[in-house]
Design a protein around this nucleic acid. Structure first.
Length: 420
RNA sequence: GGAGAGGUGCCAGAGCGGUCGAAUGGGCCGGUCUCGAAAACCGGUGUGGGGGCAACUCCACCGUGGGUUCGAAUCCCACCCUCUCCGCCA
């Protein structure tokens, strides 16, 4: 959500930011509504001030035992005008709010311009893709071969984009989740949180999924939504709060299932378990001081990269261009892991600095001497567990179809050294 | 699911339908005292918005949304949430 005052102060900067996102200018329309709204508001408030004043007089007169009927007549006359004025003020306010709620965050200055993912910029690479002396398989072929990955049974009971993992492969996924959580809590200072995974509208509005992207989510018949990421409950932990500076940065992590309808992804990644309706993810969320969110963003991205490095998985880090960023982000780093079966890098983590965009939506503030400030919110995957499982399978596969367990995961695998 | 209690400022907690944006305590900030600190004492301290260069001023907000009234934190209705007891249950 954007600050109307900031748009009022510098409409050109606002429109320039929208243009970098490939969007048409909106400041003129917003400011026109804003001006009408303030006029209506002022009139309404002046009327209320008058009404308050007269009512006060009535109280005084009555207490003194005097006749208040003249004043009461005047206030009654005033009252006839209330509904119309109130309606106008409210309607304009609602129109502005609806407009603002649907506008994405503006890109940070150092985000590269570009219309789509072709224009993302690679920043660094880690690790060298392994040389195979056989043709490496994709994860789903490997999984079916071992009989530990069952798409058919999943499809029968749940439809497309689900999977059943069994035996050592199921354990490997659990091991990955535990390993990631242990690193983020034990070494990077994130506090483990076990949040609800069903949430109400307000929470999703706060992080920006609503009102625009409800189609991407699953909804229960109680009106609850299934979270698409733990970013939602973790970030909403500071909704409506006024925090002390000493509490920042507030670093939280959670291992949760995530649910996405993938409504707009028909035909994309239909094979395998790259893009499922349900997957596990370790999420990192930082609530940062507004002056220090950029450095927190770099740190968080490093915390995610660490996991891949411990697992010995080659990866690269890119910065998303303006046209490829999500709704709430002002800057996003994607980490992509090497998948030898596919022969390319695939997204495994996305780390975003949302600036004050979500904080304004959920009223998350920092106590300050004069006028409280909005905090900055950041979120990143640390990492997507399902995709990490894929990466481990493809990178650690052997000619016979077995999969070696990475050194870092052995303590979590109860003595299993290879999955076959 | 049944019965009851309750949702007020950073926290705790009071509040006859009119001078209540809200007592009191705590916390926090500033000051006095002190070599310094603690204690004690004094003063300040809600959020959001409109107008104004500013001093300042106006409006709204006491879970949410309606209603009654000249006037609502206080009365009425609905909803949400929390707590206690009972029932059911992983």
């Amino acid at each position: 959500m954007h600050d109307l005052k900031a748009i009022r102060d510098n409409p050109q900067a606002f429109d320039d930011g929208l243009a970098r996102r490939g969007l048409a200018p909106l400041s003129a329309r917003l400011l026109e509504l804003d001006s009408r709204r303030r006029t209506a508001q002022t009139r309404f408030q002046e009327m209320q001030a008058r009404r308050n004043e007269l009512s006060k007089q009535i109280g005084i007169l009555k207490r003194q035992g005097q006749d208040a009927s003249a004043v009461m007549a005047e206030v009654a006359e005033l009252k006839d005008k209330v509904p119309a004025m109130e309606d106008e003020d409210k309607a304009l306010g609602a129109e502005i709010d609806a407009l603002l709620a649907a506008i994405p965050n503006l890109p940070a200055e150092d985000v590269p311009d570009g219309p789509d993912e072709e224009h993302n910029v690679e920043l660094r690479r880690w690790g060298t893709p392994r040389d195979f002396d056989f043709q490496p398989l994709e994860h789903d072929a490997l999984g079916e071969k071992s009989g530990l990955m069952d798409f058919d049974s999943a499809a029968k009971m749940s439809g497309a984009r689900f999977v059943v993992l069994k035996g050592a492969l199921a354990r490997l996924e659990r091991a990955l989740g535990q390993f990631m959580l242990d690193v983020q809590t034990g070494e990077h200072g994130y506090t483990e949180v076990n949040p609800p995974i069903l949430v109400k509208d307000d929470a999703l509005f706060g992080t920006g999924q609503l009102p625009k992207f409800g189609d991407d989510l699953f909804r229960a018949n109680t009106g609850h939504w299934l979270i698409p990421t733990a970013e939602v409950p973790l970030t909403n932990l500071v909704a409506d709060k006024i925090l002390d500076e000493a509490a920042l940065p507030m670093r939280m992590t959670a291992l949760t299932p995530c649910f996405r309808s993938e409504a707009g992804a028909a035909g994309k990644d239909t094979r395998g378990m790259i893009r499922h309706h349900q997957f596990w993810k370790v999420e990192l969320v930082s609530i940062a001081h507004p002056d220090r969110s950029d450095e927190e963003h770099e740190r968080m991205t490093g915390c995610a990269e660490t996991i891949l490095q411990r697992l010995g998985l080659p990866h690269r880090t890119i910065v998303l261009c303006t046209g490829d960023m999500g709704f709430a982000a002002r800057k996003t780093y994607d980490i992509e892991v090497w998948l030898p079966g596919q022969g390319r890098y695939r997204e495994i983590s996305s780390c975003s600095n949302c600036g004050d965009f979500q904080a304004r939506r959920m009223k998350a503030r920092l106590k300050a001497d004069k006028g409280n400030r909005l905090v900055h919110t950041l979120n990143g995957s640390g990492l997507a567990v399902g995709r990490t499982l894929i990466a481990v399978m493809e990178n650690y596969q052997q000619a016979d179809g077995s999969i070696l367990v990475p050194e870092a995961l052995k303590p979590y695998m109860g003595g299993v050294e290879a999955i076959r």
